[in-house]
Nucleic acid binder design. Structure first.
Length: 189
DNA sequence: CCGTAGATCCGCT
DNA sequence: GCGGATCTACGGC
């Protein structure tokens, strides 16, 4: 069985702790990516989570091994990337919502069709398009290529607030961001 | 600047 | 059938 610890984070921990620790972690996909500046936590007792009603064909990866990817189709158009956690057998995960672009900027610009750096990865659908992540990565390990994770530097300052774009459990403060980052999808208040 | 519509997959009623 | 962990283009102020 593979390790549940990656980039200095134990993915067996509750998803909101993992989401907070993921801020500042570098994620690359085929050598293209950057620093995570925005995340959201979801877990099995959370009405807003895909895993709330148990496993389905779409969400089965959320019930699989931790430190793996859960990728789903959003609004029939976009791909969204989650890092799977595990709490007591409930499906749980962290939605990666925004990156600060660091490597592979030319490829990101080509895939996104814009040169504006802030528009490359400032949203869950944008960053999967910029990195080339699709359904093909659903259920795959984050510990092996083409994924590559690197630990966050010390002294990261994290802010939090309510999650975005949901209608259930709207006051749970499980959205996390890098303080002062201009690469988040929406400002924190 | 703001609000809204449209694209169109998948799970639930 | 409908709503959604979204994004973009477009129209109005």
């Amino acid at each position: 069985m593979s390790s549940t610890i990656l980039a200095g984070i134990d993915f067996l921990a509750p998803s909101h702790l993992v989401a907070r620790q993921l801020i500042g972690v570098t994620v690359l996909f085929d050598g293209v990516g950057g620093r995570i500046v925005e995340t959201e936590a979801y877990d099995g007792e959370d009405p807003a989570s895909h895993s709330y009603s148990g496993p389905t064909e779409r969400n089965f990866a959320m019930f699989g091994p931790p430190a793996h990817a859960y990728v789903y189709r959003s609004y029939g158009i976009h791909w969204c990337l989650n890092f799977v956690c595990r709490e007591e057998g409930h499906g749980a995960g962290v939605l990666i919502r925004a990156l600060e672009p660091v490597t592979g900027l030319a490829q990101m610009r080509e895939r996104r069709g814009t040169t504006d750096e802030w528009l490359l990865c400032s949203g869950p659908g944008k960053l999967t398009q910029a990195l080339g992540v699709t359904r093909a990565q659903n259920g795959t390990s984050l510990a092996q290529p083409p994924f590559e994770l690197a630990a966050a530097p010390a002294g990261i300052e994290v802010v939090s607030g309510p999650r975005i774009g949901i209608s259930k459990a709207i006051d749970v403060p499980w959205r996390f961001g890098l303080k002062g980052s201009r690469y988040v999808s929406k400002p924190f208040r």
